[in-house]
Design a protein around this nucleic acid. Structure first.
Length: 153
DNA sequence: GCCAACGTTGGC
DNA sequence: GCCAACGTTGGC
């Protein structure tokens, strides 16, 4: 089992939105970055654990947990000309963009703020805490994941 | 809302 | 294949 961190702007799609989705599950749509796409398509598997991160809007930080319920499959919104995530270079026979299904697990009792995470020495190598880091789908090591779960208690 | 840091595009 | 111009992300 592997660990990941998914970023989202809560005014676009929040952890509450995931919780309120049918079966508390949603397709993680709209990723249009190749590095993140490679992770979604090739590396993220059913049963992997996801740290749910709220960006841009205070409080910025990790707000809870989700789980992957279906591994990477094509993002069909890229095929729809009227959709905001339409991309003409992605074809159904050779899709460019992928997503996974994620299901709400739980909120943390408190938000683990970016400030707090950056100040934690055990998380100094974490992708999220690096300067200029803006990858929206990030790998998280087991030790980083365990540190974060401990902090959340 | 600003803007630094990235990522992508396209002319050459 | 370089790199300037442009577009996007996301902390502040």
């Amino acid at each position: 089992m592997n660990y990941w961190l998914f970023k989202t702007e809560p005014n676009v799609f929040s952890i509450e939105d995931l919780k309120n989705s049918p079966n508390k599950t949603c397709f993680w749509e709209g990723v249009r970055n190749y590095q993140a796409r490679n992770l979604l398509r090739d590396d993220i598997k059913k049963g992997d654990s996801v740290l749910f991160y709220h960006s841009r809007v205070e409080p910025i930080g990790i707000v809870g947990l989700a789980v992957v319920t279906k591994a990477g499959y094509p993002d069909k919104f890229a095929f729809e000309p009227s959709h905001k995530y339409f991309d003409p270079k992605s074809k159904p026979e050779n899709p460019t963009w992928y997503g996974v299904d994620v299901k709400y697990v739980r909120h943390f009792p408190r938000v683990l703020t970016l400030t707090e995470l950056k100040a934690n020495k055990e998380l100094s190598k974490m992708v999220l805490t690096q300067k200029g880091s803006r990858l929206s789908i990030q790998p998280v090591t087991e030790s980083e994941y365990n540190t974060i779960l401990d902090l959340s208690k």
